[in-house]
Design a protein around this nucleic acid. Structure first.
Length: 279
DNA sequence: GGAAGATGACAAG
DNA sequence: TTGTCCTCTTCCC
């Protein structure tokens, strides 16, 4: 679940629940106990996300830096907190809300320097209005790496994970294995603009839906069925199933340890126009 | 009841 | 490139 839109929503929800007041902080699981004690009873100033990173700011230039990784979750709920269930690394609570963090790959108490360092290292985030897509383009159009690899590199572009990667490349009929340097600038601009739209839609709904109206089950006369992660998608985790658009079997492949999904017909293999080989 | 896999990133070699 | 960490769900026995 945790791609950029999830972290953005979390930052918003944490701000709404806790900003401007004092919070109790604890670590029922114990691994964050010493740091939780430092911020316990202090004021939350706000929360912000950058790509998949989340920072909760406390008075005194203290920040809780969280990265959910593959399996982390942060549940923000109204009401008095119940007894912790499972391994709760960090719990924040006030009179009206509580938030339980589990399974995060990063949960650190840091200063402003570290926060600035982390946010300075990531590429442009499509959810930030001041993001500059040209920063990503400068990396992409000089690279021999596959666009499917580049687009998930958080130093190139921040916030896109495996679902958005698969879906946005499908929507633009781009072969995921095509080298970044072979893309045209106009193609990148279209991909970026689409990511801005898709991520904002993800923030609004809390799900990843990427299927265009003309390809919905209703429009195509097929049975409606939500995919496992809760949204309607073209190719993500649909290996072996027919493409919603052309019916070709969706394929998968391991790319640097992550599953890549694509339709070989809608996203035909890119061939360089440069002549190669012998006479 | 247990293994495998998952929307991720890091360190080590 | 491989190994490691973290939790929860799904699938198979």
């Amino acid at each position: 679940m945790p791609e950029g839109h999830t972290l953005y929503r979390l930052a918003r929800d944490l701000s709404e629940a806790f900003a401007g007041g004092l919070v109790r902080a604890s670590s029922p699981q114990g691994r964050f106990a010493a740091d939780a004690a430092v911020i316990d009873g202090t004021a939350v100033l706000g929360a912000e996300s950058g790509g998949k990173h989340l920072f909760v700011e406390f008075a005194g230039d203290r920040f809780v830096h969280v990265h959910l990784g593959l399996i982390g979750k942060w549940d923000v709920r109204p009401g008095p907190a119940p007894d912790p269930i499972g391994a709760v690394r960090l719990r924040l609570e006030n009179a009206t809300s509580y938030a339980d963090l589990r399974g995060a790959i990063i949960c650190d108490l840091v200063g402003r320097d570290r926060r600035d360092q982390v946010l300075g290292r990531i590429g442009p985030d499509p959810l930030r209005p001041d993001a500059d897509p040209d920063r990503a383009w400068q990396r992409i159009h000089r690279s021999d790496r596959a666009i499917g690899d580049l687009i998930m590199d958080q130093e190139v572009l921040a916030g896109v994970g495996n679902v958005y990667r698969a879906e946005v490349l499908f929507r633009h009929r781009i072969d995921p294995l095509r080298p970044g340097r072979t893309l045209r600038r106009s193609q990148w601009k279209a991909v970026w603009d689409d990511l801005v739209d898709l991520l904002h839609e993800g923030v609004r709904t809390g799900r990843i839906d990427t299927v265009r109206p003309e390809h919905t089950p209703e429009a195509m006369g097929r049975a409606a069925r939500k995919d496992d992660h809760g949204g309607e998608v073209y190719v993500y985790r649909r290996t072996g199933q027919p493409c919603h658009v052309c019916g070709t079997t969706i394929r998968t492949k391991d790319l640097k340890g992550r599953n890549l999904f694509w339709c070989p017909r809608c996203q035909p293999r890119f061939r360089s126009r440069a002549k190669v080989g012998g006479p």
